[in-house]
Design a protein around this nucleic acid. Structure first.
Lengths: 141, 141
DNA sequence: ATGTATGCAAACCTTTTGCATATTC
DNA sequence: GAATATGCAAAAGGTTTGCATACAT
């Protein structure tokens, strides 16, 4: 474990305590920067370095990291699966941070798709744009 | 229950059988078109119309609806929570349908944000663009 | 010394599955 | 009548929680 990294973590953790387990988990996430991990995968990797570490510690640590802005949870707005009638017209979603409303809107995605094809060689089949912020209503009130 | 709606469903269900439960669930989803429901919410609504309906029926029905293209599951690519180091630089994700890889790429989102502000009055804080399709590698091989 | 983090086991919640019965085609 | 869908109960994930012990400050 790199001493610098531990200092980096300590700084970010403001007030929270530094433990071997937290350092281990941080190091692993750092090491695989750019990849996205299931909690359980992180747990298995952590276990290699510290066989006594517990799954619930990993969960708790990730939650603390989240609060401390160390990690970002992807798609944090989806806890359950959601369903809707399949629309003909493509649309996107805004999640309002104030009122929690999910607001549908549409915008042209073709230019984006074309750009991605050119730039990265991707063939785009579906595109979801999820935006979170403040909706018009909440901005006014 | 509207006779037209049932016919509409029957058409889409191609081969699958029409049951009271499926009609009930379809009607509810239709009725709340544009809203997104947790499975459990749908179940509770369905229960009002058909007190004997079972949660697992709702799950199974939604899965069939999905296969039959009646409904769309949102964020279907996320079964677990994923974590990564919080990046300074914004980036987006492509999920390749062939190899399941999650590929990071970046693209300018400022123009989009500006457009949404103008058009809808949204104040955008975060923007996730999730694209699924075929990555360059898989297109070539 | 105090308060916080950990490990363990149990609880919880969402989703899936096996099986006997009921229903649709 | 044959095949498929349902209800029920139980299992199977993933995540959270209560509590006693260990550790960081």
């Amino acid at each position: 474990m790199d001493h610098n990294e531990i200092c980096e973590l300590r700084e970010k953790m403001q007030g929270r305590r530094m433990t071997k387990q937290r350092a281990t988990i941080f190091t692993i996430i750092k090491q695989y920067e750019g990849k996205h991990h299931h909690v359980y995968d992180l747990y298995k990797l952590a276990k290699k370095k510290d066989p006594k570490i517990n799954l619930s510690t990993v969960y708790r640590t990730l939650n603390e990291f989240k609060k401390a802005n160390v990690v970002e949870e992807l798609h944090l707005e989806q806890e359950h699966h959601h369903y809707e009638i399949k629309e003909k017209k493509e649309h996107q979603h805004l999640i309002c941070e104030k009122c929690d409303a999910v607001i549908e809107f549409s915008m042209p995605t073709k230019p984006l798709k074309e750009q991605l094809a050119k730039q990265y060689g991707f063939f785009i089949k579906k595109m979801h744009v999820n935006v979170s912020g403040i909706c018009r209503k909440c901005r006014i009130h």
